[in-house]
């Protein structure tokens, strides 16, 4: 269980990024954080990752406060951020330095196979497409077997086909150990395709506007998916002060 208790964050320049965020995310849930720009989605993710510290409130993983980067928490950035001087397999195994070479190889090989990059294990990052690089970055986060995985709009720079392909790879990996996933996105369709629950955020300062439960489309119910999309889009529009009609989805 990941709990976020009344977290507030104000940056040194006075920007009030987050105020009064309260969330409880049960283990294994995929939660989407949806909202317009400036609503503090990325800030919240960085706080959970331990890269920044909140001004007040606390973030706890199974009861223990997160005060810095945590072995149980993995992060996939918006860009792949692969290390250009390491091959793909070494990039994926970057966080496994504490393991024996044999075990590291085995785990890297397994996760590379899951994201379909086995054939590229010995290539340089620069030889891969953007989608392949992001797949490697996701593999790098999964291979450390985190309890909580944070995804900061990792698919936003990719084309629609590649994005769907990555959704598939993400869910395949998730199904193995079922980590809790916090997915930041501004894409309603992406949230509906992946998440159990979507939290809509609102800017100035960033806070929680509303929550939408999503019957996972992977349960195979298109009606539920359309309903969830419509509900989420309505709430997102409301959080941005827009009218529903402009972006309404035809039934």
């Amino acid at each position: 269980m990941l709990t976020i208790q009344d977290v507030a964050k104000t940056y040194a320049d006075g920007t009030e990024a987050l105020a009064g965020i309260r969330l409880a995310i049960p283990a294994g849930e995929i939660l989407a954080l949806v909202g317009g720009s400036g609503c503090g989605k990325t800030t919240l993710l960085r706080l959970v990752a331990g890269l920044d510290t909140p001004n007040s409130g606390a973030i706890r993983l199974d009861g223990a406060a997160i005060t810095g980067p945590h072995p149980g928490v993995g992060l996939v950035f918006q860009e792949p951020r692969l290390l250009p001087w390491l091959g793909i397999a070494e990039n994926v195994g970057f966080g496994l330095a504490h393991l024996s070479r044999t075990e590291r190889r085995a785990r890297v090989a397994h996760v590379l196979d899951r994201v379909g990059l086995s054939a590229h294990a010995d290539r340089w990052p620069r030889d891969l497409s953007g989608g392949q690089q992001q797949r490697a970055a996701i593999a790098r986060a999964f291979v450390a077997d985190p309890k909580v995985l944070l995804l900061d709009e990792p698919f936003s720079a990719l084309d629609a086909v590649t994005r769907e392909d990555l959704h598939h790879h993400l869910l395949t990996l998730w199904a193995e150990a079922r980590p809790t996933i916090l997915l930041v996105t501004h894409d309603v369709a992406e949230a509906v395709a992946l998440a159990d629950r979507a939290v809509v955020m609102r800017p100035h300062p960033g806070r929680i506007h509303d929550t939408v439960d999503i019957a996972r489309p992977r349960s195979g119910d298109p009606e539920a998916s359309v309903a969830a999309t419509r509900a989420l889009r309505a709430k997102l529009d409301a959080s941005l002060g827009r009218t529903l009609s402009r972006t309404a989805v035809p039934a």
């Binding site: 001087w85 390491l86 091959g87 397999a89 070494e90 195994g93 070479r101 590291r104 190889r105 890297v108 090989a109 590379l112 086995s118 054939a119 590229h120 294990a121 010995d122 290539r123 340089w124 030889d127």
Partner: peptide
């Protein structure tokens, strides 16, 4: 050790020939 691609997978050694090897 962290600079040379030492972690290459056994199965991928032939890939190295056609992949990174071919590039450089």
């Amino acid at each position: 050790g962290s600079i040379s691609p030492a972690l290459g997978l056994d199965a991928g050694s032939s890939v190295a020939e056609s992949g990174r090897g071919a590039r450089s």
